[in-house]
């Protein structure tokens, strides 16, 4: 191999690892946005809420940047197989993380409205619990990405239904509240959306696990999600 070839190969590898590094950085930011957004609700912290709303632009910018780099890399280098998948995966991941950020911003916005209403502490505890679960899923799946750990990504993917279970429970709890005291309907509706957003953030973590799977194996995860209904009666003989 000549020196120039060598140089090109190395530079190409550098560009790919830059892309991966930017995705990881974006992931860190998205994680922080989600956990701060949950804190806004739990602690009724309006200053933090404004920060979360403002910082969302950074995620948007990072996503545009990653997309641009990935497209340039694909167009100029015409990578094959593995490398192409890494570039495509970076783009998909950036997209998923950007959506996650939007959901976090929406939670922060709702926390501003909630801060004006009377505190509902058992409910915010449930939101906090769900928030912790969702942030831990994000952390695990992003660790799996930076560590190229397929097994860890699959472990996150398999635990997909847990968030739904928390959401359903929160939904029942909110319903009981609203029926008991109609004055709480408006804040409860906001909390319901906060819960829904957390559930969707959890779905993005699952999505990230799927992208990691695609990046590392080249295959989509076609089998149905464990979500189907882990709680429904299992078929006989299982």
């Amino acid at each position: 191999m000549t020196n120039t070839d060598n140089h090109i190969v190395r530079a190409f590898g550098d560009e790919l690892s830059q892309l991966a590094a930017e995705v990881a950085r974006m992931g860190g930011l998205a994680e922080a946005q989600v956990s701060d957004a949950v804190d806004c609700v739990a602690r009724r912290d309006t200053t933090l809420a404004h920060q979360v709303i403002e910082r969302d632009e950074k995620l948007d910018a990072l996503q545009r940047d990653i997309e641009k780099r990935a497209i340039r890399l694909i167009a100029l280098r015409q990578p094959k197989a593995n490398d192409l998948r890494r570039a495509v995966a970076a783009m998909k991941l950036a997209h998923s993380l950007e959506r996650t950020g939007d959901l976090a911003r929406n939670i922060a916005k709702r926390s501003l409205v909630l801060a004006d209403a009377a505190p509902m502490s058992p409910l915010t505890r449930s939101i906090e619990r769900m928030g912790r679960l969702v942030t831990s899923r994000m952390k695990e799946v992003l660790d799996a990405y930076t560590g190229s750990d397929l097994e860890a990504a699959l472990a996150v993917w398999r635990r997909d239904e847990e968030v739904d279970e928390h959401y359903n429970s929160l939904f029942r709890e909110l319903l009981t509240y609203m029926m008991g005291d109609p004055r709480t309907i408006s804040p409860c509706a906001h909390l319901l959306f906060v819960g829904k957003n957390l559930e969707r953030i959890g779905d993005h973590a699952t999505n990230v696990a799927e992208i990691i799977h695609y990046e590392m194996t080249g295959e989509d995860m076609i089998d149905a999600r464990p979500k189907a209904d882990a709680l429904a009666p299992a078929p006989a003989g299982v």
């Binding site: 990881a24 660790d143 930076t146």
Partner: peptide, 20 residues
């Protein structure tokens, strides 16, 4: 930080924006 080896990417060890 689960640092796999010398020369690993910093973002693979810590992603937190404040620390970075």
């Amino acid at each position: 930080l689960r640092i796999p080896r010398q020369g690993a990417l910093l973002v693979a060890a810590v992603r937190d924006p404040e620390v970075l």
